[in-house]
Simulated scan of single mutants.
Amino acid sequence: MKKELSNSLKTLTQSKVLLYPTDTVWGIGCDATSEEAVAKVYEIKQRSESKSLIILVDGIEMLQQYIPSISQGILELLSSAVKPTTIIYNHPVGLAKNVVANDNTVAIRIPQNEFCKQLIAAFGKPIVSTSANISGNETPKSFKEINQAILDSVDYVVDLHREAISDKSSTILKVGEKGEIIVLRK
């Protein structure tokens, strides 16, 4: 894993794009603070920039750097989450403009995957995590199902967990303007 962390870190620091295993499905990722890198992800996925992307942080401390106002209820929910949980937050700061949705929200998850956590911690910044598929196509459940065009388009492919099969997606919650929690996907 050490070699994969090193190669992935090098890819991220050069504003390049990587294909990597997450706690849900294989993801296409990059530095979530680099507009140039985020634009490459949209291009690879053939996806409109009007559709936002999920980003990953390594923990609550990093989350608070980009989401300055988080309610105690959300913090408690995050510390007790068993299933991967993505939360859509209002008014993020410090992220690439093209990773933030038109309504000034961003979807963020703290991964439950050791590789992801170590990579993000070493990188020191959030990374994009969008499913490894062309926009509109089915999400691959395993590395073998990833479209060759995706494999050819990224700058680095992590050589870990390639035999794993995952069909789990994260729970998606949204924080309303008054702090209420809205369930978008269980």
Rank of each mutant, 00 (worst) to 15 (best):
L5Q: 11
N7E: 15
L12K: 09
T13K: 15
V17Y: 12
L18W: 07
P21M: 13
D23Y: 00
D23V: 09
A32N: 11
S34M: 09
E35S: 15
A37Q: 04
A37F: 09
V41D: 02
Y42P: 01
E43T: 10
K51M: 02
L56G: 02
D58R: 00
M62I: 13
I70C: 02
G73T: 10
G73H: 08
E76W: 05
L78P: 01
S79N: 15
S80A: 10
T85I: 07
I88D: 00
I88N: 03
N90Y: 10
G94R: 04
N98V: 13
D103K: 12
N104F: 02
T105N: 01
Q112C: 06
E114F: 11
K117D: 04
Q118H: 02
A121G: 12
G124M: 06
V128Q: 00
V128K: 03
S129F: 08
E138T: 10
Q148L: 12
A149G: 06
D152M: 02
H161F: 15
E163C: 08
A164F: 10
D167Q: 15
K168D: 14
S169V: 12
L173F: 07
K174I: 13
V175K: 03
E177I: 15
E177K: 15
E180I: 13
E180T: 14
I181H: 03
